[in-house]
Nucleic acid binder design. Structure first.
Lengths: 148, 148
DNA sequence: ACAGATGGTCAAGTTGCTTGACTAAGTCTG
DNA sequence: CAGACTTAGTCAAGCAACTTGACCATCTGT
């Protein structure tokens, strides 16, 4: 594969990812969830379904645990998550989604489905399935980080 | 397409994009270009091949022109770009890549090719070509923004 | 020709992250 | 089972990339 092809692939991928993030975010806001940023969505994916500690969250987001803790503060203030005592480790706390947090997560899922719909119209259902399968095969197992 | 499938597709796409951005960045740093951030790369893609104004750059990156101007300051200080008088508009300035800027761009292209290589090994050359074609079809024409 | 739009910068404020220092609780060793 | 080390979490201060607001110089349209 030539460099120029790799560039075209990379540029297209990043453009699509940026667009997708923005559309999901807009969709969530349009459904009435204000004061949430895209980074919160990535936190939610780690907190669902059973919660996680601040340290887990920090690793998932690729930030320091102080930053993760501040993010949790903000989400608590806005009512999306709760800090609970951790069963079996008195130092730790289990951060869990509130009902509002779950509602927001469902809104994000709907927004994602909506954002993907044009792709189905463009490529057809089968091709999108192929795309998903390909991306799943090359997706890293590690933390999901901001793209930049 | 079900919501859960759209979620899986979105998550995989964003994970791959995050990974890709990080690998390209690491590759550029490994080639000796320090003090560059991923956002600079997106600026470079707009500045090549003929330069652009600060306002163009701001629109491309999806930030204010003040932010774009500050970014240009930084790139000038580090030797990657130059501000030139704009031919035909005395208000504007044409921001162009220096030789160092071009070298950095080539390094990013090599790093991108390197980051994509494992995908070829995983999926095969043909499948990657399909992936590229699909992404190019759904890629937006608009500005390339940070994913979040 | 002059009113308004546009390109760019300066200055100040906000925000989301970092590094550093610390406490409380768990774990491992002898 | 005591003492040293590690780990979870927070507090505090600083930094860096952005924002908003104000401003001047230049271009454009009637």
């Amino acid at each position: 594969m030539q460099n120029s092809e790799a560039i075209a692939l990379s540029a297209a991928l990043l453009a699509v990812a940026g667009e997708l993030t923005q559309r999901i975010h807009e969709g969530v806001v349009a459904r009435g969830f204000e004061g949430v940023r895209p980074a919160h969505g990535f936190a939610f994916t780690r907190l669902a379904p059973d919660g996680a500690t601040v340290t887990d969250l920090a690793a998932h987001l690729g930030v320091t645990k102080q930053a993760a803790s501040q993010l949790v503060d903000e989400l608590v203030r806005k009512g999306y998550v709760e800090r609970r005592p951790h069963p079996g480790d008195a130092r730790a706390r289990l951060i869990v989604l509130t009902e509002l947090g779950w509602a927001c997560t469902r809104a994000a899922e709907e927004a994602a489905a909506e954002a993907v719909r044009p792709w189905v119209e463009l490529l057809g259902e089968g091709e999108v399935r192929v795309l998903r399968a390909q991306l799943l095969r090359i997706a890293p197992y590690g933390p999901i980080r901001p793209a930049w």
